[in-house]
Amino acid sequence: MKDDNQGNPKSSFKMPNSSIDIYAVQCVKCYKWRVIDMQEEYEEIRSKFTEEPYVCSKKPGISCNDPPDIDYDSSRTWVMDKPNLPKTPEGFNRSLVLRKDFSKLDAYYISSSGKKMRTLVEVAAFLEANPELKGVSVDDFSFQCPRVMEDTIPEYADKKIPTGGSASKKMKISKDGD
């Protein structure tokens, strides 16, 4: 999820370096949103979401009886990630950058040496050129991006949300926990 500085007019809006400023997960039992403190923890939860659905009690001292950490509303632009994407390999950072027209996010991987990779072909070439990265595979990377939730895009943005295809699919959490 990303804070969009909604009170600013379009002309003064500046994109931050990192588009994601808060990570949150929805409980499969009570549907409340829980803030996850670190990207690495969020990615761990996301990578195992189908096998280990998130429940409030996984957060220390929290239960479904507690109020949500954050509410889904238009005070910020929300994006919904797909479950079970691989956790970013150690030594790399995954960066998601929201396009200025709010149409989608772009994913990048940045190595510990600062090399920015935009495609799996670039990742494969980097891994081949760096054989010391044993145990890291192209399969450990995903350029699938979260879907921008149209109902939370600020009014001043030129809304160009893609329709159809895989971009229109989002992570659903049904009442039966599917």
Rank of each mutant, 00 (worst) to 15 (best):
residue 33 W to Q: 07
residue 34 R to S: 03
residue 34 R to D: 05
residue 34 R to I: 02
residue 35 V to R: 13
residue 35 V to E: 07
residue 37 D to P: 05
residue 37 D to L: 06
residue 38 M to S: 06
residue 38 M to V: 05
residue 39 Q to R: 03
residue 40 E to W: 05
residue 41 E to M: 11
residue 43 E to S: 02
residue 43 E to M: 00
residue 46 R to M: 06
residue 46 R to W: 00
residue 48 K to I: 06
residue 49 F to M: 09
residue 49 F to D: 04
residue 51 E to H: 02
residue 51 E to P: 00
residue 52 E to W: 02
residue 53 P to D: 00
residue 53 P to V: 00
residue 54 Y to F: 15
residue 55 V to N: 03
residue 55 V to E: 06
residue 55 V to A: 00
residue 56 C to P: 01
residue 57 S to K: 15
residue 57 S to A: 15
residue 58 K to A: 12
residue 59 K to G: 04
residue 60 P to Q: 08
residue 60 P to A: 07
residue 61 G to Y: 04
residue 61 G to Q: 08
residue 62 I to G: 02
residue 63 S to T: 15
residue 66 D to A: 08
residue 68 P to I: 03
residue 69 D to E: 08
residue 69 D to K: 14
residue 69 D to F: 11
residue 69 D to W: 06
residue 69 D to P: 12
residue 75 S to N: 15
residue 75 S to A: 14
residue 77 T to W: 05
residue 77 T to V: 09
residue 77 T to S: 14
residue 77 T to C: 13
residue 79 V to H: 01
residue 81 D to P: 00
residue 81 D to V: 05
residue 82 K to T: 13
residue 83 P to I: 06
residue 84 N to W: 01
residue 85 L to M: 11
residue 87 K to M: 04
residue 87 K to C: 01
residue 88 T to C: 07
residue 89 P to H: 11
residue 89 P to S: 12
residue 91 G to Y: 07
residue 91 G to Q: 09
residue 91 G to F: 07
residue 92 F to A: 06
residue 92 F to E: 06
residue 93 N to V: 11
residue 93 N to A: 11
residue 95 S to Q: 09
residue 95 S to G: 00
residue 97 V to T: 01
residue 98 L to S: 00
residue 100 K to F: 01
residue 102 F to V: 11
residue 102 F to G: 02
residue 102 F to M: 07
residue 103 S to P: 04
residue 103 S to D: 07
residue 104 K to E: 13
residue 104 K to F: 06
residue 105 L to G: 04
residue 106 D to R: 10
residue 107 A to L: 06
residue 108 Y to R: 13
residue 108 Y to L: 10
residue 110 I to D: 01
residue 110 I to E: 09
residue 110 I to V: 15
residue 110 I to N: 03
residue 111 S to M: 04
residue 112 S to N: 10
residue 112 S to R: 10
residue 114 G to F: 12
residue 117 M to P: 04
residue 118 R to T: 14
residue 119 T to P: 08
residue 120 L to G: 04
residue 120 L to Q: 11
residue 121 V to F: 02
residue 122 E to P: 09
residue 123 V to E: 05
residue 123 V to A: 08
residue 123 V to F: 04
residue 125 A to Y: 03
residue 125 A to N: 09
residue 126 F to K: 09
residue 129 A to Y: 10
residue 131 P to E: 04
residue 133 L to K: 10
residue 133 L to G: 05
residue 133 L to W: 04
residue 134 K to C: 03
residue 135 G to C: 07
residue 136 V to L: 08
residue 137 S to I: 08
residue 138 V to K: 15
residue 138 V to T: 15
residue 140 D to Y: 12
residue 140 D to W: 10
residue 141 F to R: 12
residue 141 F to D: 10
residue 144 Q to M: 07
residue 144 Q to V: 13
residue 145 C to L: 04
residue 146 P to T: 10
residue 147 R to H: 15
residue 148 V to G: 08
residue 149 M to H: 09
residue 149 M to N: 11
residue 151 D to C: 07
residue 151 D to F: 02
residue 151 D to N: 02
residue 152 T to P: 05
residue 152 T to A: 08
residue 153 I to P: 03
residue 153 I to R: 08
residue 154 P to V: 05
residue 155 E to S: 14
residue 157 A to D: 06
residue 157 A to L: 01
residue 157 A to H: 10
residue 160 K to I: 12
residue 160 K to E: 12
residue 161 I to G: 06
residue 164 G to H: 13
residue 164 G to A: 14
residue 164 G to Q: 10
residue 165 G to Y: 13
residue 165 G to A: 12
